[in-house]
Design a protein around this nucleic acid. Structure first.
Lengths: 363, 363
DNA sequence: GGGACCTAAGAAAACGCTTTCTGGTCCGCT
DNA sequence: AGCGGACCAGAAAGCGTTTTCTTAGGTCCC
């Protein structure tokens, strides 16, 4: 008797690519080639194959594909915490541009927890991602080590080790922060506070430094007691604001290292009956979507999520696909003026009061 | 000469599980068994294997695992849009409980876009997820069809087809909404508006119905002109609020189908100088984390993300692991009173004014 | 002492693809 | 006519695991 075809089946029915091959009366190799658009397949056959695929509702098993080809087609994205609205917006951008580049993404958040970070790394390794963007705005040392050691292309924002295979995205915090300080100074503020992020984060330090520098540029002497450390959460903003309120001579304006912190400040100000911007001006950082609809709408320093995503993926692709030797990418920031900033209290001379630049006020 | 061992190598070095096997002087089968904690392996050998794994920093290739075992260990989560803060909170919960159950998750958002929905489905299918939770709060018909057809266990919230393999999570909107309406009524409101979600969403309709019903329970006649359709975004909330403002006799309180809508209302109210809650009371739905820090802090109807996640995963596991025949799960909602609700304007009789229940006010 | 029966580890066959290798057909050229 | 390439479809060898099948080595008990 003739040797039966030795193919995987289930209840007599062929499975997966084999079923397609059988229906289109071609070999599985041809099916594979058709799907992957290898140009050498006979258009005639290709048509048959596509028809069969359609008819059977065939969806290739991506794991098998990855295994066979040695390419996972996945880029990793490591973020701090998904519940901070900045990150979902970043994820959205990242996904969009990854998709456009033919990649899928795998996002994992550290939640600032070493245990969770381990998990992030493991996930990336297990899934054989082709590169990972670390957008936690801090160098997570173990992350770097484990991944870099295994030659996974990496991209950091702000700071990271100088190794081959690792790219950097430099965010120009200074530009936006300077605009913010100048804006405040122009309104007449001289007593300006700053609530930073957790100081172990590189980005938080960078922002704080940009602030001090900008202050100096405007000829304002920085006061250490007005430099508070927050933690990039609303609660941190509230706590920092409490400290500010406790002090005898308060600043007339405060800048925050991110918008969540600013929301906390806004909230606390509301709680104690301080009007923003009449009694206190506040400016945020990131310009999350929600900033626009805050009460009052938040003046903030915008850092484009899309630019960030674009830069990250460009960097990763450069490594993966061996194009371009570029190592550093730039992302800019700029001020968006809304209504949480105004003249400092007591500055309402007639001269100024009738000025054209007065921001809209409640009622 | 002796037949050389025919194993995959790269530059002479063994790869993956083979390297471990070689170093521990066992077969790859034993390594696999050790990793999977099959009880029959000699503890002695197991120790050698673990040592080798450690020394080599071996991380199993999860795709190969999935292929070999036929189990992906992944649960899908389909959401509407990641930039609505409700969803990140849900994702967080989902991930936590999935992890605890030994699953990974794959989240994908539809963005209300049919094209994107296609993509969601495809992703789930390609990745061979073992089940998917559709948390879009609407029945996405094509989703159901494609996935159900292929016997992927599904769980919907609120509504979904009654098929084997499909579970439902019933959210008791009425409980929370009734509390909300009663709260408003107790404060003296009789003119209460409602801004729904997009009416093609089942959940949006359910919430609207719960509202009408609750109104009736309180002996208040619903007015069609105060039933507005929003779209679960801040912008939708703003637009709906504009309609309310345009009308001659306005409601003194409005309930919203979600918190984002409520934020829009708050914003618009602020814009036109309406004080909340003095001039208008507003209550949200979902009770996102941010509601607590809104200005004023938002009275909202809480729907626990964790409960939702728990129910979804329990349902999925029941199908995957063949445990329990349960088909329906319950999740409750309840009112959280904060400061966006107060007496209706003009209700400030002395009697009431000195009442104990008056919520905190600004200043 | 020797079969029956376990036990546990190794060999080998999947898993569902991709990709290299092979070989047949057809063409053009001398 | 005969030969060398192109060209393209199919056969088969991976990819890195899991899992089934096999077999070597013990035990036990008569």
């Amino acid at each position: 008797m003739s040797r039966a075809v030795q193919h995987p089946k289930k209840r007599g029915k062929l499975l997966g690519i084999h079923a397609v091959a059988a229906k289109a009366r071609v070999s599985i190799a041809t099916v594979s080639r058709t799907i992957n658009r290898v140009p050498t397949v006979n258009p005639q056959m290709a048509k048959r194959v596509w028809a069969a695929i359609d008819e059977l509702g065939y969806v290739p098993n991506i794991q098998a594909r990855a295994l066979g080809s040695g390419r996972s087609g996945v880029l990793g994205l490591v973020i701090s915490e998904i519940t901070n609205p900045f990150f979902p917006e970043l994820i959205q951008g990242f996904e969009d541009v990854a998709l456009a580049s033919g990649y899928e993404i795998l996002v994992s958040s550290t939640n600032y927890d070493p245990k969770r970070m381990e998990l992030c790394i493991r996930r990336m390794l297990e899934r054989k991602v082709e590169g990972v963007a670390v957008m936690t705005f801090g160098i997570e040392q173990p992350l770097v080590e484990e991944l870099a050691e295994r030659d996974v292309p990496l991209v950091f924002v702000d700071a990271g080790p100088q190794r081959p295979g690792i790219s950097l995205i430099k965010v120009n915090y200074h530009h936006g922060v300077r605009q913010g300080v100048q804006h405040l100074a122009a309104l007449g503020h001289r007593r300006i506070g700053f609530i930073s992020g957790p100081m172990h984060l590189h980005s938080a330090r960078s922002r704080a430094e940009a602030f001090s520098l900008s202050l100096a540029e405007c000829g304002i002497k920085p006061r250490a007691k007005w430099m508070l450390e927050g933690d990039h959460t609303m609660e941190g903003g509230i706590r920092a604001m409490e400290q500010i309120l406790d002090s005898a001579d308060r600043p007339t304006a405060v800048m925050c290292s991110n918008d969540m912190t600013a929301l906390g400040v806004l909230h606390k100000a509301y709680r104690v009956g301080l009007r923003v911007p009449d009694d206190l001006s506040v400016v945020g950082f990131d310009d999350i979507h929600m900033a626009e609809v805050m009460i009052p709408p938040l003046t903030s320093i915008r850092m484009s999520r899309l630019d960030l995503a674009q830069a990250a993926i460009t960097a990763l692709r450069a490594h993966v696909e061996g194009t371009g030797p570029q190592r550093e990418y730039q992302v800019d920031t700029h001020l968006v003026v809304r209504e949480s900033t105004g003249y400092p209290p007591g500055a309402m001379t007639d001269l100024v009061k009738n000025g054209k630049a007065e921001p809209a006020r409640r009622r």
